[in-house]
Protein backbone atom coordinates (compact mmCIF):
# COMPACT_ATOMS: atom_id res chain seq x y z
CA UNK A 1 0.00 0.00 0.00
CA UNK A 2 1.37 3.36 -0.95
CA UNK A 3 1.10 6.12 1.62
CA UNK A 4 -0.30 9.47 0.56
CA UNK A 5 0.68 12.79 2.08
CA UNK A 6 -2.58 12.81 4.02
CA UNK A 7 -1.65 9.52 5.69
CA UNK A 8 1.56 10.86 7.14
CA UNK A 9 -0.01 13.06 9.84
CA UNK A 10 -1.97 10.32 11.60
CA UNK A 11 0.88 7.90 11.06
CA UNK A 12 3.35 10.19 12.80
CA UNK A 13 0.79 10.96 15.50
CA UNK A 14 0.26 7.24 16.15
CA UNK A 15 3.95 6.50 16.26
CA UNK A 16 5.05 9.56 18.21
CA UNK A 17 4.24 8.32 21.76
CA UNK A 18 6.07 5.04 21.23
CA UNK A 19 8.98 6.75 19.54
CA UNK A 20 9.27 9.32 22.32
CA UNK A 21 9.18 6.57 24.94
CA UNK A 22 11.76 4.58 23.00
CA UNK A 23 13.98 7.63 22.71
CA UNK A 24 13.70 8.54 26.38
CA UNK A 25 13.95 5.12 27.94
CA UNK A 26 16.10 3.20 25.49
CA UNK A 27 18.02 5.23 22.91
CA UNK A 28 19.28 7.98 25.21
CA UNK A 29 20.36 5.60 28.04
CA UNK A 30 22.10 3.31 25.54
CA UNK A 31 23.95 6.23 23.95
CA UNK A 32 24.86 7.46 27.44
CA UNK A 33 26.19 4.02 28.42
CA UNK A 34 28.27 3.82 25.24
CA UNK A 35 29.70 7.30 25.81
CA UNK A 36 30.55 6.57 29.47
CA UNK A 37 32.25 3.32 28.42
CA UNK A 38 35.05 5.39 26.88
CA UNK A 39 35.74 7.22 30.14
CA UNK A 40 37.24 6.53 33.50
CA UNK A 41 34.60 7.79 35.89
CA UNK A 42 33.68 7.14 39.51
CA UNK A 43 30.45 9.12 39.44
CA UNK A 44 31.83 11.90 41.63
CA UNK A 45 34.94 13.42 40.14
CA UNK A 46 35.34 14.59 36.53
CA UNK A 47 35.34 11.83 33.91
CA UNK A 48 38.64 11.18 32.14
CA UNK A 49 38.64 10.05 28.51
CA UNK A 50 40.22 6.62 28.13
CA UNK A 51 39.46 5.68 24.55
CA UNK A 52 39.01 1.92 24.19
CA UNK A 53 41.12 1.06 27.23
CA UNK A 54 38.06 -0.08 29.22
CA UNK A 55 37.18 -2.55 26.46
CA UNK A 56 40.78 -3.72 26.23
CA UNK A 57 40.81 -4.36 29.99
CA UNK A 58 37.53 -6.24 29.75
CA UNK A 59 38.83 -8.60 27.11
CA UNK A 60 41.94 -9.25 29.19
CA UNK A 61 39.88 -9.97 32.29
CA UNK A 62 39.23 -13.70 32.71
CA UNK A 63 36.29 -12.97 35.02
CA UNK A 64 34.57 -10.95 32.30
CA UNK A 65 35.25 -13.51 29.57
CA UNK A 66 33.89 -16.23 31.84
CA UNK A 67 30.83 -14.05 32.46
CA UNK A 68 30.20 -13.68 28.72
CA UNK A 69 30.60 -17.43 28.20
CA UNK A 70 28.22 -18.18 31.07
CA UNK A 71 25.64 -15.81 29.66
CA UNK A 72 25.85 -17.37 26.23
CA UNK A 73 25.47 -20.85 27.74
CA UNK A 74 22.58 -19.59 29.84
CA UNK A 75 20.83 -18.07 26.85
CA UNK A 76 21.30 -21.22 24.77
CA UNK A 77 20.07 -23.46 27.57
CA UNK A 78 17.08 -21.17 28.06
CA UNK A 79 16.19 -21.10 24.39
CA UNK A 80 16.93 -24.66 23.45
CA UNK A 81 16.34 -26.70 26.61
CA UNK A 82 14.04 -24.71 28.89
CA UNK A 83 11.61 -23.63 26.18
CA UNK A 84 11.40 -27.09 24.52
CA UNK A 85 10.58 -28.59 27.94
CA UNK A 86 7.91 -25.92 28.35
CA UNK A 87 6.64 -26.72 24.85
CA UNK A 88 6.35 -30.44 25.61
CA UNK A 89 4.42 -29.70 28.79
CA UNK A 90 2.22 -27.20 26.96
CA UNK A 91 1.40 -29.78 24.28
CA UNK A 92 0.63 -32.45 26.87
CA UNK A 93 -1.52 -30.20 29.05
CA UNK A 94 -3.32 -28.76 26.02
CA UNK A 95 -4.71 -32.23 25.37
CA UNK A 96 -6.36 -31.77 28.78
CA UNK A 97 -5.40 -35.03 30.48
CA UNK A 98 -6.75 -35.77 33.94
CA UNK A 99 -5.53 -33.22 36.47
CA UNK A 100 -4.24 -30.83 33.80
CA UNK A 101 -5.41 -27.75 35.69
CA UNK A 102 -3.56 -28.88 38.79
CA UNK A 103 -0.31 -29.44 36.87
CA UNK A 104 -0.69 -26.15 35.01
CA UNK A 105 -0.93 -24.37 38.38
CA UNK A 106 1.99 -26.34 39.81
CA UNK A 107 4.23 -25.52 36.87
CA UNK A 108 3.23 -21.87 36.90
CA UNK A 109 3.53 -21.40 40.67
CA UNK A 110 7.27 -20.63 40.77
CA UNK A 111 6.62 -17.67 38.47
CA UNK A 112 4.75 -15.87 41.21
CA UNK A 113 7.56 -16.41 43.72
CA UNK A 114 10.40 -13.94 43.75
CA UNK A 115 13.63 -15.09 42.15
CA UNK A 116 15.47 -14.07 45.31
CA UNK A 117 13.28 -16.33 47.46
CA UNK A 118 13.80 -19.23 45.06
CA UNK A 119 17.54 -18.67 45.10
CA UNK A 120 17.55 -18.69 48.91
CA UNK A 121 15.55 -21.92 48.86
CA UNK A 122 17.99 -23.57 46.47
CA UNK A 123 20.95 -22.30 48.41
CA UNK A 124 19.57 -24.21 51.37
CA UNK A 125 19.00 -27.28 49.21
CA UNK A 126 22.58 -27.20 47.92
CA UNK A 127 24.12 -26.51 51.36
CA UNK A 128 27.07 -28.84 51.87
CA UNK A 129 26.29 -29.60 55.52
CA UNK A 130 22.56 -29.38 55.96
CA UNK A 131 21.30 -29.36 52.38
CA UNK A 132 18.45 -31.54 51.19
CA UNK A 133 20.37 -32.74 48.13
CA UNK A 134 23.28 -34.16 50.09
CA UNK A 135 20.80 -35.53 52.64
CA UNK A 136 18.90 -37.41 49.93
CA UNK A 137 22.11 -38.76 48.41
CA UNK A 138 23.18 -40.06 51.81
CA UNK A 139 19.72 -41.50 52.43
CA UNK A 140 19.89 -43.46 49.18
CA UNK A 141 23.36 -44.77 49.95
CA UNK A 142 25.21 -42.44 47.62
CA UNK A 143 26.80 -40.23 50.26
CA UNK A 144 30.00 -40.45 48.23
CA UNK A 145 28.39 -38.09 45.72
CA UNK A 146 27.63 -35.47 48.38
CA UNK A 147 29.65 -32.31 47.93
CA UNK A 148 29.68 -28.55 48.20
CA UNK A 149 27.61 -28.10 45.06
CA UNK A 150 28.01 -24.34 44.91
CA UNK A 151 31.63 -24.35 46.01
CA UNK A 152 33.08 -26.80 43.51
CA UNK A 153 34.36 -25.57 40.16
CA UNK A 154 32.78 -28.43 38.20
CA UNK A 155 29.33 -28.29 39.79
CA UNK A 156 28.71 -24.65 40.71
CA UNK A 157 27.52 -23.34 37.35
CA UNK A 158 25.42 -26.41 36.46
CA UNK A 159 23.88 -26.23 39.95
CA UNK A 160 22.91 -22.60 39.43
CA UNK A 161 21.54 -23.33 35.97
CA UNK A 162 19.77 -26.67 36.38
CA UNK A 163 17.09 -25.77 38.91
CA UNK A 164 16.20 -22.68 36.91
CA UNK A 165 15.70 -24.68 33.70
CA UNK A 166 12.68 -26.39 35.22
CA UNK A 167 10.85 -23.16 35.96
CA UNK A 168 8.92 -23.39 32.71
CA UNK A 169 5.51 -22.10 33.72
CA UNK A 170 5.69 -18.72 32.02
CA UNK A 171 6.59 -20.10 28.59
CA UNK A 172 4.28 -23.06 29.02
CA UNK A 173 1.27 -20.80 29.59
CA UNK A 174 2.12 -18.64 26.56
CA UNK A 175 2.34 -21.70 24.31
CA UNK A 176 -0.78 -23.28 25.79
CA UNK A 177 -2.69 -20.14 24.92
CA UNK A 178 -1.40 -20.39 21.36
CA UNK A 179 -2.15 -24.10 21.05
CA UNK A 180 -5.78 -23.57 22.06
CA UNK A 181 -6.23 -21.39 18.96
CA UNK A 182 -5.33 -24.26 16.62
CA UNK A 183 -8.37 -25.49 14.75
CA UNK A 184 -9.54 -28.84 16.18
CA UNK A 185 -10.38 -30.08 12.69
CA UNK A 186 -6.65 -30.57 12.00
CA UNK A 187 -6.42 -33.03 14.87
CA UNK A 188 -9.69 -34.73 13.91
CA UNK A 189 -8.45 -35.25 10.35
CA UNK A 190 -5.11 -36.54 11.62
CA UNK A 191 -6.87 -38.94 13.98
CA UNK A 192 -8.98 -40.28 11.08
CA UNK A 193 -5.77 -40.75 9.09
CA UNK A 194 -4.40 -42.79 12.00
CA UNK A 195 -1.85 -40.29 13.32
CA UNK A 196 -0.78 -40.84 16.91
CA UNK A 197 -0.79 -38.05 19.48
CA UNK A 198 2.98 -37.80 19.10
CA UNK A 199 2.70 -37.50 15.32
CA UNK A 200 0.01 -34.85 15.73
CA UNK A 201 2.27 -32.87 18.01
CA UNK A 202 5.21 -33.12 15.61
CA UNK A 203 3.29 -32.47 12.38
CA UNK A 204 0.50 -30.15 13.49
CA UNK A 205 1.10 -28.43 16.83
CA UNK A 206 4.78 -27.60 16.62
CA UNK A 207 4.73 -26.28 13.02
CA UNK A 208 1.72 -24.11 13.83
CA UNK A 209 3.18 -22.52 16.94
CA UNK A 210 6.77 -22.35 15.72
CA UNK A 211 6.69 -18.90 14.21
CA UNK A 212 4.37 -17.46 16.82
CA UNK A 213 4.59 -18.44 20.48
CA UNK A 214 7.59 -20.76 20.18
CA UNK A 215 9.74 -18.10 18.50
CA UNK A 216 8.53 -15.56 21.05
CA UNK A 217 9.33 -17.84 23.98
CA UNK A 218 12.79 -18.75 22.65
CA UNK A 219 13.57 -15.06 22.20
CA UNK A 220 12.22 -14.14 25.63
CA UNK A 221 14.02 -17.00 27.37
CA UNK A 222 17.32 -16.26 25.66
CA UNK A 223 17.11 -12.59 26.55
CA UNK A 224 16.26 -13.52 30.16
CA UNK A 225 19.29 -15.81 30.11
CA UNK A 226 21.49 -12.97 28.98
CA UNK A 227 20.46 -10.67 31.80
CA UNK A 228 20.70 -13.14 34.68
CA UNK A 229 21.62 -11.53 37.95
CA UNK A 230 19.63 -12.26 41.09
CA UNK A 231 19.94 -16.05 41.09
CA UNK A 232 23.69 -15.91 40.69
CA UNK A 233 24.08 -13.03 43.11
CA UNK A 234 22.12 -14.80 45.80
CA UNK A 235 23.42 -18.31 45.24
CA UNK A 236 27.13 -17.79 44.61
CA UNK A 237 27.90 -14.11 44.04
CA UNK A 238 29.76 -15.36 40.98
CA UNK A 239 31.99 -17.77 42.91
CA UNK A 240 33.89 -20.02 43.11
CA UNK A 241 36.70 -18.28 41.23
CA UNK A 242 34.19 -16.33 39.08
CA UNK A 243 33.00 -19.56 37.46
CA UNK A 244 29.34 -18.63 37.91
CA UNK A 245 29.66 -14.93 37.14
CA UNK A 246 27.42 -13.28 34.57
CA UNK A 247 27.82 -10.00 32.70
CA UNK A 248 25.25 -8.18 34.82
CA UNK A 249 26.86 -9.41 38.04
CA UNK A 250 30.25 -8.33 36.72
CA UNK A 251 28.74 -4.95 35.88
CA UNK A 252 27.24 -4.68 39.38
CA UNK A 253 30.63 -5.37 40.96
CA UNK A 254 32.24 -2.70 38.80
CA UNK A 255 29.54 -0.25 39.88
CA UNK A 256 30.35 -1.03 43.50
CA UNK A 257 34.02 -0.13 43.04
CA UNK A 258 32.75 2.44 41.66
CA UNK A 259 34.08 2.10 38.13
CA UNK A 260 31.33 3.43 35.88
CA UNK A 261 33.53 3.27 32.78
CA UNK A 262 34.18 -0.46 33.01
CA UNK A 263 30.59 -1.10 34.10
CA UNK A 264 29.31 0.79 31.05
CA UNK A 265 31.76 -1.00 28.77
CA UNK A 266 30.47 -4.36 30.02
CA UNK A 267 26.90 -3.11 29.53
CA UNK A 268 27.76 -2.14 25.96
CA UNK A 269 29.12 -5.65 25.35
CA UNK A 270 25.94 -7.11 26.82
CA UNK A 271 23.86 -5.04 24.42
CA UNK A 272 25.95 -6.26 21.49
CA UNK A 273 25.67 -9.90 22.62
CA UNK A 274 21.91 -9.39 23.00
CA UNK A 275 21.58 -7.94 19.50
CA UNK A 276 23.59 -10.83 18.02
CA UNK A 277 21.35 -13.32 19.81
CA UNK A 278 18.08 -11.72 18.75
CA UNK A 279 19.15 -11.32 15.14
CA UNK A 280 20.39 -14.94 15.06
CA UNK A 281 17.12 -16.20 16.49
CA UNK A 282 15.11 -14.22 13.95
CA UNK A 283 17.19 -15.64 11.14
CA UNK A 284 16.83 -19.13 12.57
CA UNK A 285 13.05 -19.02 12.83
CA UNK A 286 12.38 -17.08 9.64
CA UNK A 287 14.84 -19.22 7.68
CA UNK A 288 13.22 -22.43 8.82
CA UNK A 289 9.80 -21.06 8.04
CA UNK A 290 10.80 -20.28 4.47
CA UNK A 291 12.30 -23.73 4.03
CA UNK A 292 9.12 -25.35 5.30
CA UNK A 293 6.99 -23.22 2.95
CA UNK A 294 9.19 -24.18 0.03
CA UNK A 295 8.92 -27.87 1.03
CA UNK A 296 5.15 -27.50 1.28
CA UNK A 297 4.98 -25.98 -2.20
CA UNK A 298 7.24 -28.69 -3.57
CA UNK A 299 5.05 -31.32 -1.91
CA UNK A 300 1.97 -29.75 -3.45
CA UNK A 301 3.41 -29.94 -6.95
CA UNK A 302 3.82 -33.70 -6.84
Amino acid sequence: MRLTRNDKGPLIAFMAPALIMMLLFFVIPVVYVVVVSFFKWNGITDPEFRGIRNFALLFKDKAFLRSVLNNVIWALVAGFIQVPIAMVMAIILSRKPKGWKFFRTVYFLPQVISGIALAMLWRAIYNANTGLLNGLLTLFGRGDLARDWLGTIETAFPAVLIYWVFYIGYYMVIMMADITTIDESYYEAATIDGATEFQQAIHITIPLIRKTSLATCVTLASVMGLRQFEQVYMLTNGQPANTTSTIVLYMYKKLQEPNYGMASASAAILIIVGIIFIVSLRLLFNGKQETRQVKKRKGGMK
Partner: peptide
Protein backbone atom coordinates in the same frame (compact mmCIF):
# COMPACT_ATOMS: atom_id res chain seq x y z
CA UNK B 1 33.73 -26.90 57.90
CA UNK B 2 32.61 -28.54 54.65
CA UNK B 3 31.24 -26.09 52.16
CA UNK B 4 33.35 -23.14 53.26
CA UNK B 5 34.00 -22.15 49.64
CA UNK B 6 30.35 -21.32 49.09
CA UNK B 7 29.70 -20.28 52.69
CA UNK B 8 28.60 -16.87 53.86
CA UNK B 9 28.63 -15.10 57.21
CA UNK B 10 25.46 -16.94 58.24
CA UNK B 11 27.21 -20.29 57.84
Amino acid sequence: FDGAISAGAGD
